[in-house]
Amino acid sequence: MGGLKEVLLEAMANETAFTIPIFGGIGISQSVVVSWLIMAVLMAVTLLLTHKLKVRDPGKVQIALECAVNFLNNFAHNNIGKHWRPFAPYLGTVALYIGFSNIIAIFGLTPPTKDVSVTAALAAMSLCVIYGAQFRYRGLVGGMKEFASPVWILAPINLMEVAVRPLALCMRLFGNILGAFIIMELIKYLMPVGVPAVASIYFDLFDGLIQMAVFVFLTAIFTGEGIKEEE
């Protein structure tokens, strides 16, 4: 069973892809490299799809694109309220990045979201968006007061949430993707033929997309909670 142990350890480890030999060596992890790859592909596809949009008589691809953007806008509007506009692009960016990161294992790459540092960065960004929006749209005093809502006695819990929310976002995403990745590695080790393809549909595709939706949805809801009633 030595091989199995090795597989498990390898699945859990975050490899360093290469090291930049300055400041005593900056290790660039594999997750960052895969992220760059994902970003490059997303950017290239974006430029390809949006370089000639037409106001009149859009093509099928453009209609699909518009439907998706429209869906995103509606989603942001429903969950965030009237100040949804600046948040929709961020939510869409995070959705695309996490979505592709989660399902990249299908193409044989290591999902960046299996690295807790990446999910921590995503959660930190969500933290900034959620509480940044709260103070941006309510002012310093209003933002502070929001912590004492709906009643002042809940203030400790609300303050605790500042830490709990990003931690939960970070660990949920990381745990799900790492778990799915480990299970897939085990299946591949034990039954290399046939079963991985079927299991991959659930563990990589379905679970990955669900976790993406959960992350984006929670970020949107928390952001909306902070600024919604202000009308």
Binding site: N14, V32, V94, S117, M125
Partner: peptide, 16 residues
């Protein structure tokens, strides 16, 4: 497994 790499975090934020 649960190590936070500041470089990765910063690079991911920059990426985002």
């Amino acid at each position: 497994m649960l190590e936070f790499h500041p470089v990765t975090i910063v690079l991911t934020i920059v990426n985002l």
